[in-house]
């Protein structure tokens, strides 16, 4: 009987080995995904009623579809919560203009980037005096408290722009159109999203200058244990660019405002 017990134990040990090391929480093994997105970013992630729309939202849907996921639920997140919700498992994936940085990489793992945005400048279409960041000297530039974009121009680039405060980039846009300020500078996709919405609402046409002063690799945030998920997301992004879907989405959301979007696959961060 002792021997029978031993054999049983051996059998159990061997059977147990089959699942050892498997990560049951990987997004590659799920049929339904909860995706964290922005709820207030026109063109990227915007909630109207109960539905979400924008480039980030469409990218998340594409990735989910290519992972074989059947149900996608969106959840609004903010820059303050995106790491904690990933770690707690409240969301499976974050697609929310989430720039990959070395510090963030110590907390979560990033698939992608699915797009490399750049800080750029938005002006009224008839503005001819602003061709790069240095031309912002002495001009009225929107400053949103808490955003790194304004200090990047003034402190890091040493360009003495005049601050005009606004609470959100949406408010900046309104002031730009009414002539209360001369330029808005932040990620080009955010600017293009705002400008596209403004164009739909009618009003003074706007233009993106096209003088990038930063690289903002937008990554797909995942729980740091999900290396398989990260690799699968990279594969999904690769095919998304190869079959022209990415180019189509960029055209849909940012085409009308003259953003010269990059339609080739970005350099991935790597999953290890």
């Amino acid at each position: 009987m002792r021997i029978t017990a031993l054999v049983l134990a051996a059998g159990a040990a061997l059977a147990g080995c089959g699942v050892a090391g498997a990560d049951g929480d990987s997004i590659t093994r799920k049929d339904a995904l909860v995706v964290g997105v922005n709820a207030d970013q026109p063109g990227l992630g915007l909630r109207t009623g109960g539905t979400y729309s924008g480039f980030d939202v469409d990218v998340a849907r594409q990735i989910a579809r290519r992972l074989g996921v059947t149900t996608v639920t969106f959840k609004p997140i903010t820059s303050a919560t995106r790491e904690s919700v990933l770690r707690s498992g409240a969301v499976d994936m974050v697609v929310a203009s989430y720039s990959i940085t070395p510090e963030r990489k110590t907390k979560v793992i990033f698939g992608g980037p699915y797009y490399v945005a750049h800080q750029d400048i938005l002006v009224r279409k008839d503005e001819s005096g602003i061709r790069n960041v240095r031309d912002l000297k002495g001009r009225r530039l929107c400053e949103v408290p808490g955003s790194v974009s304004f200090p990047r121009v003034t402190r890091e680039r040493g360009v003495a722009a005049v601050s005009v405060r606004a609470d959100t980039y949406g408010a900046c846009l309104a002031k730009l159109r009414s002539g209360e300020l001369d330029a808005v500078s932040t990620d080009d996709l955010i600017l293009a999203g705002l400008a596209a919405q403004a164009a739909r609402d009618g009003g003074a046409p706007l233009r993106i200058v096209g003088a990038p002063i930063s690289d903002e690799p937008y990554g797909v945030g995942l729980n740091s244990a999900d290396i398989d998920g990260c690799e699968a997301v990279n594969k999904a992004i690769t095919t998304m660019y190869q079959d022209g879907t990415a180019a189509r989405l960029l055209r849909t959301w940012f085409g009308p405002v003259g953003l010269r979007a990059t339609t080739t696959v970005p350099q991935f961060e790597g999953c290890d």
């Binding site: 690799e231 990279n234 690769t238 080739t264 696959v265 350099q267 991935f268 790597g270 999953c271």
Partner: peptide, 13 residues
């Protein structure tokens, strides 16, 4: 460059 980089990442996988 991005494609070349991604290709070697894939092979490392």
């Amino acid at each position: 460059l991005p494609k070349a980089y991604n290709l070697t990442l894939d092979d490392g996988t």
